[in-house]
Amino acid sequence: MFATPFSSKKSLSQHSNRHTCKFKGGRNMQALDPSKLGPRQKLSNRHRRWRKLGTWSLVGVFLMIFAFFLVLDLGDMGVKSFPITYIVRSGSMAPAFNTGSLIVDTRFTSQMPLKPGEIVTFANPVVQQGVLLTHQIVGIVHKNHKVFIKTKGEANKYPDAFLTPESNIVGVYHFAIPLLGYVIVFIKTRWLWLAEMVAGFVAIYVVLTKVIRPARKEIKS
């Protein structure tokens, strides 16, 4: 069956509308075919993609730094679900970990079993100034219905000259990151709050400009 002239015009207009896009001025313009883009247009699109990738990578780095210091702060403030971190200031436990390392401890509770060979962080029972030591347990002593530990630095020739009560134990050694303690000391003494504030503001700015604002534009259009 042959189509009438009216129906052919209608089908032709529908077919042409599929390949045109309408702008605010009411004019129709033929849609761009990606395969027909020139070298400059392809290069600009590539630059945009790389710029977006670089922006989000920078945001990711700032968020990781912010989260890292947040975990350190929460652990130092005594939040039980977060680990405790300490900076090694002497070489008494070398080669297990050296001066300047950042050690990560699990918070100690009385329900945790103690055994020789385990490394623990404890308050020095001799010095009354809150000095913490991280040494290895070499013996467990039961005295007057209390538990004491005998400790020794791995690099030291002799054990410590005192017994430490179980109540003085703060944490159980988990792992150490070499040299990171030096970085933490530098940042905490000089740039900690500034670094955290900058990281937070940069993350908020990027989320507002790269996520929320484009989403609003798409909704309005």
Rank of each mutant, 00 (worst) to 15 (best):
Met77Arg: 10
Lys22Leu: 09
Ala67Tyr: 12
Leu37Glu: 07
Gly91Leu: 05
Trp56Gln: 06
Phe62Leu: 00
Pro34Cys: 04
His19Gln: 12
Ala31His: 06
Val79Phe: 15
Asp33Ser: 14
Leu32Lys: 10
Trp56Arg: 01
Val88Ser: 05
Pro34Tyr: 15
Gly60Ala: 09
Arg27Asp: 04
Lys24Ile: 02
Met29Ser: 01
Phe69Gln: 05
Gln41Val: 02
Pro34Lys: 14
His47Ser: 01
Tyr86Asn: 15
Gly26Ile: 06
Asp33Pro: 09
Val59Glu: 02
Arg89Gly: 09
Arg27Ser: 07
Gly60Val: 02
Gly91Val: 07
Met64Thr: 11
Arg46Leu: 07
Lys80Glu: 10
Pro83Asp: 02
Gly26Val: 07
Val61Ala: 02
Leu58Glu: 09
Ile87Ala: 04
Gly25Val: 13
Pro39Asn: 03
Leu53Trp: 14
Gln30Asp: 06
Gln41Ala: 11
Phe69Trp: 11
Asp76Tyr: 15
Cys21Lys: 14
Leu70Tyr: 00
Leu63Asp: 08
Phe23Ile: 02
His47Pro: 00
Trp50Arg: 14
Pro34Val: 07
Val79His: 13
Arg89Gln: 05
Met29Ala: 08
Val59His: 04
Leu72Trp: 02
Phe23Asn: 06
Met77Ala: 01
Val61Cys: 00
Gly54Asp: 08
Ser90Asp: 03
Arg51Glu: 04
Ile87Phe: 15
Cys21Gln: 13
Val61Arg: 02
Ser90Leu: 06
Leu72Ile: 00
Leu53Asp: 10
Asp33Ile: 13
Trp56Asp: 05
Ile87Ser: 05
Arg27Val: 15
